[in-house]
C-alpha cells in the first residue's frame, strides 16, 4: 500500500485535481451560456412571459442539436474551434471548451424545466402588483425555482464529470486518462480500482452536498 501510494500517489492526486478543475470550470462556463439561454427559452414558450414562436423554435433546435451529438464525436469535431479559443486542443484548457459546448445546451434544458415548474398563478400575482418582466424573471421565477435550479447543478456536474473521462482519451488528462493509460493499457487493475473509487466518492460527496443544500434552501413543506 505504501509503495503503491509512493509510486502513483502524486499521479492520482494531480489526475483528481485535473478532473475537478475540468468539471468545475466547464460547469461554470456552461451556466454562463446555458442559464440565459434557458431563461430565454422559458420566457418565449407559448405560455411564457413573452411568447415568441420563432425564437422559441430556433432555441429549441439549437438546444436539441447540441444535446444529440455524442460527446466523443463533438470532442474531436470541434478541435479547430477549441484551438481558436484556447490555442490548444490538449490538456485541461483543451478539454474545457468541448465540455462547455456539450454542457451548455444541457444546462439550458435543465434551467428551462426548473423555471417551468414555477406556478403560473405566482407570475399572475406578480403582474397584478405591477412587476415588469425582468422583475418577474429575477424575483419570482428564479427565486421560486432556486431549489430545483440547485438540483440541476448536481445533474450537470455529474454528467460533466463523466464526460471528462472521455476528454481524457484525447489528451486532456485527469482520472479518466489515468484509468485508461495505466489501468487498461498497462493492465494495472489496482490503479483502475483506485480511479473508480475516487470517482465514486467524488460524485457521492458532491451529490449529497447539493441535495443537502437544495433541501436546506427549499422553504416548501417536505
Amino acid at each position: 500500500m505504501g509503495e503503491f501510494l509512493e509510486t502513483y500517489g502524486s499521479l492520482l492526486a494531480s489526475g483528481t485535481v485535473d478532473t475537478l478543475v475540468m468539471t468545475c470550470a466547464a460547469s461554470f462556463f456552461a451556466y454562463v451560456i446555458g442559464l440565459p439561454l434557458g431563461i430565454w427559452f422559458a420566457v418565449t414558450t407559448p405560455t411564457g412571459l413573452r411568447p415568441n414562436r420563432a425564437i422559441n423554435t430556433i432555441l429549441g433546435w439549437i438546444i436539441n442539436i447540441g444535446r444529440s451529438i455524442p460527446f466523443i464525436i463533438l470532442l474531436v469535431a470541434i478541435i479547430p474551434f477549441t484551438r481558436l479559443i484556447v490555442g490548444t486542443s490538449l490538456g485541461v484548457p483543451g478539454a474545457v471548451v468541448p465540455l462547455t459546448v456539450a454542457a451548455a445546451p444541457f444546462v439550458a434544458r435543465v434551467v428551462e424545466q426548473s423555471l417551468a415548474e414555477v406556478d403560473s398563478s405566482l407570475i399572475e400575482a406578480a403582474h397584478s402588483f405591477g412587476a415588469n418582466n425582468f422583475q418577474i424573471i429575477t424575483k419570482v421565477m428564479l427565486r421560486e425555482s432556486l431549489p430545483s435550479l440547485v438540483r440541476g447543478v448536481a445533474i450537470t456536474f455529474v454528467s460533466l464529470f463523466g464526460y471528462t473521462a472521455m476528454a481524457g482519451t484525447v489528451g486532456a488528462g485527469g482520472l479518466g486518462d489515468i484509468a485508461i493509460r495505466y489501468g487498461y493499457q498497462r493492465y494495472m487493475p489496482d490503479v483502475m480500482l483506485v480511479c473508480i473509487i475516487i470517482c465514486v466518492v467524488m460524485v457521492q460527496v458532491f451529490q449529497s452536498a447539493i441535495d443537502w443544500l437544495a433541501r436546506h434552501i427549499d422553504k416548501r413543506k417536505h
Binding site: 398563478s121 427565486r143 416548501r220
Partner: peptide
C-alpha cells in the same frame, strides 16, 4: 386569489 398565490420561498 383563491389559492393565496404567496411566494413559497419568501
Amino acid at each position: 386569489f383563491q389559492n393565496f398565490s404567496l411566494f413559497q420561498q419568501r
